[in-house]
Simulated scan of single mutants.
Amino acid sequence: MLPLLLASSSVYRRELLARLGLPFVCSSPDIDESHRPGEPAIELVKRLSREKALALASSHPAHLIIGSDQVAVLGERVLGKPHTFENAREQLLAASGAQVTFLTGLALLNSQTGACQVDCVPFTVNMRLLDPERVERYLLAEQPYDCAGSFKAEGLGVSLFQSTEGPDATSLVGLPLIRLVDMLLAEGVPVP
């Protein structure tokens, strides 16, 4: 079996991948994550997932490289990582009472053969009505500035949700394990 490499510095993705009980290492790719003009959100996350895996292929020539990227979509608006309190506050207030779809791109690259599987797993969240005070309390407690759409679903972010729907709840945190297992099995990895 080729060794697994997670192309990410995300603690959340690392914790999710560890659930599979397979040995892996992590390395953070250096890519431009800019959204191209007119690029649909689904294509954005698929492209970035693939590019993250490809960016590490030459330095890891005999690995299975996992790349993943996520955005939240509110109507036609793509919500990335807010980076600041003010941006996060604005994102959450805009999402109040609305439906937000998380799109998580996933790529598995066999750097030995060049074969690359790529997919996007959607997960929809129906938001509670949120007032500014509740949003500020959440932001001060959770500080989700590195999370798409300002939602830290593995923490207090779940308290902002009315309901959820989707094929894989782990995609909400940033690494769709059900789809990843399918990809690993297609590469002959003996997943427990």
Rank of each mutant, 00 (worst) to 15 (best):
P40A: 11
V73A: 01
L103A: 01
L130F: 01
S68H: 15
P144E: 15
A95Y: 05
H35N: 03
I65T: 03
K46A: 14
S96M: 11
R19T: 12
T104L: 13
T113E: 08
D32T: 02
H60K: 07
S59Y: 08
Y12S: 14
L79V: 05
L79Y: 10
E90Y: 03
L56K: 10
F85G: 06
R77H: 10
E51L: 15
G114F: 05
V71L: 01
E86T: 04
L93V: 03
L108H: 04
S9I: 03
I65N: 00
D119L: 09
A55G: 09
E15S: 08
S34C: 03
T84D: 05
I42C: 10
A94D: 13
L103D: 00
S27R: 14
A115M: 06
S59L: 09
A107G: 02
D131S: 05
P37F: 11
E33I: 09
A141P: 11
E51P: 02
V25M: 12
F85H: 13
G38P: 13
K46M: 15
H35V: 15
A107T: 00
L17C: 13
Q112S: 05
R19A: 05
L22W: 11
E76R: 15
G75M: 07
V118I: 11
A88I: 03
F102S: 00
A18P: 15
R19V: 12
Q70T: 14
L64E: 09
L79T: 04
V78K: 00
A115F: 07
F85I: 03
A88S: 04
R134Q: 06
E43Q: 15
S10C: 09
I31V: 08
F123S: 00
F123V: 02
G105R: 00
A98M: 08
L54Q: 08
C116N: 02
S58T: 07
L56H: 12
G80V: 04
Q143A: 14
K52G: 05
L48N: 11
F102E: 01
E33S: 11
S10M: 08
E136K: 04
Q117H: 09
P37T: 13
T124V: 09
T104E: 06
A95L: 06
G114D: 07
R13P: 10
P144L: 05
K46E: 13
F102G: 02
F102R: 02
G67C: 06
S10F: 05
G38A: 11
E76Q: 10
V11R: 15
A62H: 14
N87E: 14
R89L: 12
G114C: 10
E33T: 00
S9W: 01
E86D: 15
P82Y: 08
G38Y: 03
R134D: 08
K52M: 05
F123L: 01
V11K: 15
V118M: 05
L54I: 15
I66K: 14
N126M: 04
I42F: 11
K46S: 12
Y12R: 12
